[in-house]
Nucleic acid binder design. Structure first.
Length: 436
RNA sequence: UCCCCAGUAGCUCAGUUGGUUAGAGCGCACGACUGUUAAUCGUGAUGUCGUAGGUUCGAGUCCUACCUGGGGAGCCA
């Protein structure tokens, strides 16, 4: 430790300290030397700083320590803050002393060059330190904050739903674990059913937390663990639901554009593709979607669910997300409300992001008729005893209600323009990847 | 579960119709250089060619199986 009286400063704050002596702590990202002048680039989480060491103006010990610096050595450097056009960012530190906090052996795996994805995921704990990954994490955090602010401003109550559940929810794969004398517990695939219970208590609620799908999916859109935000609103019908969704997404995008320009630039995101994301979004009835697809040469028939390729065709050329609504009953979950105008379909919507990112929201009005819901549970051969409490919500003062689930990582991937969802999560869980 | 592709140095990759001693760049080590921007220049070290069989005088190269990974389908957010 140096015994100087200089104050510690974060790199981001350095312009305000111009002309003064400060101490900065961080990790070495880069070292360059030209004999008697050396450059050390360090990162402290707030920014990146070029430090200049001149042999004649630092102690021999400091100069010698410079020679030991390798990528990711953690250091404490004291020096004078200077505004200099030659420095990246316009500010640099003229070092007067350099101390090594924690050495790094010089075999740091992640170099300033291209790596394969497998290698990077194996080193995810270190990959996070690179500039691009830091930008993604900051945008993700901003999106999460925007989600909370959006609902807080609209007087929704945050309700945390359980992660350990009995078999309930959707049909796709479940992660099971033993649970005392109760048989198997399953990791939650959705908080929605609990959200419906809470909506009858609080009117407007949302849950936001991790959710789990044991599907053996190997695509750029799937994780086995992901975060989902699920609002549920009493007395909202399907149209109200879509209106809430388009306002929600527009709010999130506007917030990121307002506060995370630097990160979007680092990610080389074409922000003109985000600036057009404003409510209202186009709405395409499923019947029309099938006709459009057939006219574009798709083999799709009425009654089929829409595949990834179909979704891309429908969103082709759109400058904002697109709703496809009222799908055939067979293609959707048991809890969705039958469409009174066409009982072959249910009142629901998928919100498809542009630029090929696909479904970021699935939403629906919920079946509020006790008998019809019971019938649907039986049709799907779901364990009736697990759904008794869910039917109670229709037994005691049933109510029109609707809600949706927004996939956080898919939203992050779209807004950041990422080629694969795994970069949208700090430690992504895939079917063949549980570590780091 | 199905379809396609790939495994060669720490990393990214090249390696001809099968041919004798296995290649480059980056990184790393040592050296030179007083303003570098992924600095530059010189010198040097580094390999179970995914695994196991097979064909052949000879296999990184051809064949079979397996393993691992990537992309896609399905499922969905």
């Amino acid at each position: 430790m140096t015994s100087s009286s200089s104050e510690y400063a974060r790199i981001v704050d350095l312009p305000a300290h111009a002309g003064r002596s400060v101490r900065v702590r961080g990790w070495v990202t880069h070292v360059r030397s030209s004999g008697k002048v050396a450059f050390v680039v360090i990162r402290d989480g707030s920014g990146i700083l070029q430090v200049v060491l001149v042999k004649s103006t630092v102690s021999p010990e400091s100069w010698e320590r410079f020679g030991t610096l390798t990528q990711e050595t953690s250091v404490e450097i004291e020096g004078e803050v200077r505004l200099d056009k030659r420095a990246p960012g316009g500010v640099e530190l003229g070092a007067t002393s350099l101390e090594v906090e924690g050495p790094s052996p010089g075999d740091y795996p992640i170099q300033p060059k291209e790596h394969g994805i497998d290698f990077l995921l194996d080193h995810r704990h270190l990959w996070l330190r690179s500039e691009r990954q830091r930008a993604i994490l900051r945008v993700r955090a901003e999106i999460e904050q925007a989600i909370r602010d959006f609902f807080y401003e609209r007087d929704f109550t945050l309700v945390d739903t359980p992660i350990l559940t009995a078999a309930i929810g959707e049909r796709s794969g479940l992660f099971a674990t033993e649970y005392f004398d109760e048989g198997n517990a399953y990791l939650a695939q959705t908080g929605q059913l609990y959200g419906e219970a809470a909506a009858a208590a609080l009117g407007k609620i949302y849950c936001f937390g991790p959710t789990f799908r044991a599907e053996k999916s190997k695509t750029r859109r799937h994780l086995t663990e992901f975060w989902m935000c699920e609002p549920e609103v009493a007395f909202n019908d399907s149209n109200d639901n879509m209106k809430l969704q388009e306002e929600f997404i527009s709010f999130i995008v506007a917030r990121v554009l307002e506060r995370k320009q630097k990160e979007l630039a680092e990610l080389e995101r074409d922000v003109s593709k985000l600036e057009t994301v404003k409510a209202p979004f186009p709405r395409i009835d499923y019947n029309d979607a099938v006709k459009i697809l057939q006219s574009k040469g798709s083999e799709v028939k009425w009654g089929d669910d829409l595949g990834a390729e179909d979704e891309s065709l429908l969103v082709e050329g759109a400058d904002r997300p697109v709703f496809i609504f009222n799908y055939p009953k067979e293609a959707k979950a048991f809890y969705m409300k039958e469409n009174p105008a066409d009982p072959r379909t249910v009142l629901c919507d998928d919100c498809l992001a542009p630029e090929g990112y696909g479904e970021i929201i699935g939403g629906s009005q919920r079946e509020d008729d006790y008998d019809r819901l019971l019938e649907r549970i039986k049709e799907e051969k779901l364990p009736l005893d697990a759904y008794g409490w869910y039917l109670d919500l229709r037994k005691y003062g049933t109510f029109v209600h609707s809600g949706f689930g927004l996939g956080l990582e898919r939203t992050v991937a779209w807004i950041c323009g990422l080629p694969h969802i795994r970069e949208a999560s700090p430690f992504p869980r895939l079917m063949n990847r549980l570590r780091p």
